[in-house]
């Protein structure tokens, strides 16, 4: 099955442009990149789906000349979802501008924190558990009996 070279070139340019924009930090450019990328992939599906033809509507033309409807269905879904994503990215960009005065994607602070994390809990150096239990016991030994204890002992003696 032959493919239109022109469509392949369109795919290449749109995807390349989309990727370059996607790699930027400005959310507006990321959004435009996603749009370009979406268009590029849609054209790719279209090109792979076969040659141009009549609209896939029964009764409007000979069946053999009809374009393949399946890629069209997929692209239709993709168009609508791209719109939803664009709207969401826009909202993100706007919110980012509201909070920071720009729409740039900052480095993930959490990731940095993980990377810079030192060894956790320096006191947990594998001290013997017995030791601590013994210390607990020692602490218990050293504590003075409470008034309640005294009272109880007094009762018993009486």
């Amino acid at each position: 099955m032959s493919v239109s070279a022109v469509l392949a070139v369109v795919v290449g340019v749109l995807v390349a442009g989309g990727v370059v924009l996607l790699l930027e930090r400005s959310l507006t450019r990321v959004l435009l990149g996603a749009a370009l990328l979406g268009n590029g992939i849609n054209v790719m599906i279209l090109a792979m789906g076969g040659a141009a033809g009549e609209a896939p509507i029964i009764g409007q033309g000979p069946k053999d000349e009809m374009a393949d409807p399946i890629p069209q269905v997929m692209i239709l879904t993709s168009i609508v979802i791209t719109f939803a994503m664009t709207a969401f990215l826009l909202a993100l960009a706007y919110r980012s501008w509201q909070l920071q005065g720009n729409d740039e994607v900052q480095d993930d602070v959490e990731d940095r924190l993980v990377a810079n994390r030192r060894e956790s809990e320096p006191e947990d150096t594998g001290a013997d558990a017995d030791l601590e239990a013994a210390q607990d016991a020692q602490a218990a030994v050293e504590e003075t009996p409470s008034k309640a204890d005294d009272a109880a002992i007094g009762r018993e003696h009486a």
């Binding site: 493919v3 290449g12 995807v15 390349a16 989309g18 990727v19 790699l23 792979m48």
Partner: peptide, 19 residues
């Protein structure tokens, strides 16, 4: 460079997959 690589490969893929 990354963009051109991905784009070129996608275009190539379009041609190959259809065949």
């Amino acid at each position: 460079a990354v963009g051109i690589a991905v784009g070129t490969l996608m275009a190539l893929l379009t041609l190959v997959v259809a065949g």
